[in-house]
Amino acid sequence: MNTTEPAPGQPLVTARELRKAYGSTPALCGASAELNAGEILALTGPSGSGKSTLLHCMAGIVRPDHGPVTYRAERLDSAPEERLSELRRTDFAVMFQFGQLIPELTTVDNVSLPLILNGTDRRTAQKQARTWLERFGVLDRAEARPGELSGGQAQRVALARALVTSPKAVFADEPTGALDSLAGEQVMTELTSAARESGAAVLLVTHDATIAAYADREIRLTDGRTATLEVSA
């Protein structure tokens, strides 16, 4: 495992010629992408083009059928499940459109969860969680449960949970897909500014050109293939 920090602009997570099928339905047919340290990269394309599958493969959530995925020279496609889980607790963070918050836990406990899983005591974890909730303007909802939050509030809480461990890469799958345009832009502004401050790379899946405009680069997918590489945003 390579422990040296890649310099900004150097490859952090790389996927080469990935193939993935769900049963007889192909999702990826030779897709490639490179997420560099500190950059914000948008994966765009029509529905069913394989954007989410490529993100899941690069985040180590789904294993490709063929093709390597590397994180700082470490192969993720063949890494044991425990190592991938560890990466999600430390170096990676994942955000979805909705549903990533646990309904039984309060907002502050949801944000504390990755830290608690890492062995941080609950009091310290909650203190850190409150700092992030304050930053994203939802500290007053700290004791609320996800069902009591608006969509925008829930996504800001999810954002706090993603960033609480100071990850090296944030994988966001349509993070504003369930929000109105104003709330979506607020979440994107907060995500990109927090990522730039901390130096985290962001891989963003979206089909919305306004959201893709927040990225440094854009890769388009069509029919499971990277149709256009390195489109500057």
Partner: peptide
Amino acid sequence: VHRDRRMACLRLAGAAPAR
């Protein structure tokens, strides 16, 4: 289904399968 989602959330937050 509800509990499956909760467990999947834990996995996404970094909990290993054994945990």
